[in-house]
Computed example of a mutant assay.
Amino acid sequence: MCGKRESGEFSMGGPRNCYRSLAWTSMSTIFSQAQLGMVDMGVLAATQIDRFGNLNSTMLGPDYHRPAKRLPGSGGANEVLTQCWQMVVVIKHERRRFVEKVDFVTSPGYLDGKAGARERAGLPRDTGPWRVATSKALYGWIR
């Protein structure tokens, strides 16, 4: 997943993001630590986000079997968003990325937005999206 994508964007695990890191470990180690409650904050990127913080990085279009465009996928984003205490989503500030409902829920935010939706889905209490950072604004959710 390292390196430049076709669209000209760099992936979260790319060399530019890892340069001068204090630690560099495996995904399975981080996922295990997140499951144990040891990871305070995760940072993700996505192609689409809706008002409930659900992320799509899998496909565009209404038909899963014949999508308009297939995307790189989760790459571990689901584990980060479901297990870290807080989540920051970094996304380009473009109208097409902020949608009413994502085409595919790759990583669940607050699902349908109703109180306790994450817990009913079996996700840890007090976890989920915290902020969305763009080049023009910083958004957040009231818990």
Rank of each mutant, 00 (worst) to 15 (best):
C2Q: 10
K4C: 08
R5S: 12
E6Q: 09
G8C: 09
G8K: 13
E9Y: 14
E9L: 11
F10Q: 09
F10G: 08
S11F: 12
M12C: 11
G13Q: 04
G14W: 06
G14D: 09
P15F: 14
P15V: 13
P15I: 12
P15Q: 11
R16Y: 11
N17Q: 08
C18K: 12
L22P: 05
L22H: 10
L22F: 12
A23Y: 14
T25L: 07
S26T: 08
S26A: 10
M27N: 07
T29G: 00
T29E: 05
I30N: 01
F31K: 00
S32G: 10
S32D: 05
Q33D: 01
Q33P: 00
A34D: 03
A34T: 01
Q35N: 07
Q35W: 08
M38H: 08
M38W: 09
V39D: 08
V39A: 00
D40C: 02
D40E: 01
V43G: 01
L44Y: 11
L44Q: 12
A45T: 04
A45P: 13
A46L: 04
T47F: 12
T47V: 04
Q48R: 13
Q48H: 06
D50W: 14
D50H: 15
R51W: 03
G53F: 04
G53E: 06
S57M: 11
S57K: 04
T58N: 14
T58I: 08
L60E: 08
P62V: 05
P62Y: 05
D63Q: 00
D63L: 06
H65F: 04
R66N: 14
P67N: 12
P67Y: 04
A68V: 06
K69N: 09
R70Y: 05
L71G: 03
P72R: 09
G75N: 04
G76T: 07
A77W: 03
A77N: 05
N78F: 14
N78I: 10
N78L: 13
E79G: 02
E79M: 00
T82C: 09
T82K: 00
T82E: 01
Q83C: 04
C84P: 00
C84A: 01
C84H: 00
W85L: 03
W85S: 06
M87L: 09
V88E: 11
V88M: 11
V88W: 07
V88P: 12
V89G: 04
V90H: 13
V90F: 13
V90Q: 12
I91H: 05
H93K: 11
H93L: 06
H93A: 05
E94A: 11
E94M: 15
R96T: 11
R96S: 15
R97E: 10
R97Y: 09
V99F: 03
V99G: 14
E100V: 10
F104Y: 11
V105N: 00
T106F: 06
T106C: 12
P108I: 15
G109M: 05
Y110D: 05
Y110F: 04
L111A: 13
L111M: 15
G113V: 06
K114S: 02
K114F: 13
A117C: 02
E119P: 01
L123G: 02
L123Y: 03
P124T: 00
R125W: 00
G128W: 00
P129C: 10
W130N: 10
W130Q: 06
W130V: 03
R131Q: 14
R131C: 12
V132Q: 08
K136M: 15
Y139R: 14
G140Y: 01
G140D: 10
W141C: 14
I142L: 15
R143C: 13
